[in-house]
Simulated assay, not measured.
Amino acid sequence: MAKILIAGAGYGGLTCAVELEKAGQPFTLINKHDYHYFTTLLHEPAGGRNKFEEYKVNLHDVLRKESSKLVKGVVTGLSPQENKVLTDKGELSYDYLILALGNAPEYFGIPGMAEHAMLLRSWDTARKIHEHIEHMFRMYRDDRDETRLRIIVGGAGLTGIELCGELAEWMPELMATYHVPAEKVQLINLEAAPTILPMLDEGLRKAAEEVLTKKGVQLRTGTAIVKVNENQVELKTGEVIDARTIIWTGGVRANPLIAAAGFEVDPRGRAKVNEHLQSVDFSNVFVIGDSAWFTGPDGKPLPPTGQAATQMGAVAAHNVLRIMKREPLETFTLNYMGTLASLGAEVGVGNVKGMKTKGVSAALMKEGSKLKYLWQLGGLRLVNKKRGQLSSRR
């Protein structure tokens, strides 16, 4: 029987595993953790909405067949020439590999960013951000250092803006708990580009700006960070801002193991794939999600989104099965559902299948998308287990 190996249990890797299990096809899934976390929702617990345990699911709750083998380990290298994946638990061989290693932060060469900024990119980093901010407010009560109350979020894409929305709603609770005057707190979003949320149209961007500004967020577009020091950022304008909390959400690139293994990659380190999601270098390797350099009909690479990764995972699974059955392979085409940005627990902006939405309706659609994803992973059983946990602020 052919050996199928999935490397990574993010949106793409886990969807692939679910599809293979539905088909009764044995496989091995290796992942750093024994759980899957909701990457696109991490701004919520980081900013004080709900408990952290509610934003992850145990892999054994999703993959329940004995033939589905789960390995908790870290991928340390790739050897596609030998059909092997190197891990901290030893070598894993395969006949077919689905490469879904996720991403690494993109710092754009900004000195000091890697050393001094926090990242929102995993369940653990979201928890650290939350705990750090609360610790800063607690420390201010003792030493009155106002830089503890200044939070800088670098990047105004989905992650940065959604994080600002959640943090803004958390601030009043922190101010009340630690007796902090409102005028002392600053939440600053810095973006080098001329606008926030570039994937949305101007009307929706303005609506988001109005909501965030009313919540107390300082939106500063056209403001590039050129250097990060300990507790300090330097701007292209020459301005220097002191802050004890600096969070970077400005971009991602592929896991560096991909380029190191000899795959043909784009400037972001993503492996080039054909229309079937096969590596152009190794036909028995399928590359999906943030690891894949897939060019859409417009000639541009697909952006790294959860919906793209999920759809890629399903197609990769189908194509592995088709190869084994000697059937024609499925062509991947992104079914773009739209973009929704939450600006807190009860308001958002976005578009769904070309329909613009904002306010409470956008927030409700965002909640609906969470339940839809849980249904795809584990049907009614998983929905019932998680339902009601991912919608209300604590």
Rank of each mutant, 00 (worst) to 15 (best):
T39E: 02
T39K: 10
T40Q: 14
T40C: 15
L41F: 12
L41G: 01
L42I: 04
L42R: 10
L42G: 14
H43F: 11
E44V: 06
A46H: 04
A46Q: 01
A46M: 07
G48I: 05
G48A: 03
R49F: 05
R49G: 04
N50D: 07
E53C: 07
E53N: 13
Y55K: 12
Y55G: 13
Y55H: 09
K56C: 15
N58G: 07
N58A: 09
H60N: 15
H60R: 15
H60K: 14
D61M: 14
D61V: 15
L63R: 11
L63I: 14
R64Y: 01
E66H: 11
S68Y: 11
K69D: 13
K69W: 09
K69I: 12
L70Q: 10
V71L: 10
V71E: 11
K72W: 07
K72T: 15
G73Y: 09
G73S: 15
G73I: 07
V74C: 10
G77A: 06
G77R: 05
L78A: 02
S79A: 13
E82N: 14
N83H: 11
N83R: 09
K84Y: 00
K84A: 07
K84G: 02
K84V: 15
V85L: 00
V85E: 02
T87P: 07
K89C: 09
S93D: 07
Y94Q: 09
Y94F: 12
D95P: 08
D95Q: 05
D95C: 06
I98Y: 06
I98L: 08
L99Y: 08
L99G: 01
L99Q: 05
L101I: 00
L101S: 02
G102F: 04
G102K: 10
N103L: 02
E106D: 12
Y107L: 06
F108S: 08
G109P: 13
G112S: 08
M113H: 04
M113Y: 01
A114R: 14
A114F: 01
E115T: 15
E115Y: 02
E115D: 11
H116T: 02
A117E: 02
L119V: 01
R121M: 11
R121P: 00
S122Q: 00
S122L: 05
W123C: 04
W123Y: 11
W123Q: 04
W123V: 06
D124Q: 15
T125Y: 01
K128H: 13
K128D: 09
H130M: 02
H130R: 13
H130E: 04
E131G: 05
H132F: 14
H132Y: 13
H132C: 10
I133W: 01
I133N: 08
E134N: 09
H135W: 14
M136E: 10
R138V: 11
Y140M: 07
Y140K: 02
Y140E: 07
R141G: 07
R141D: 11
R141N: 05
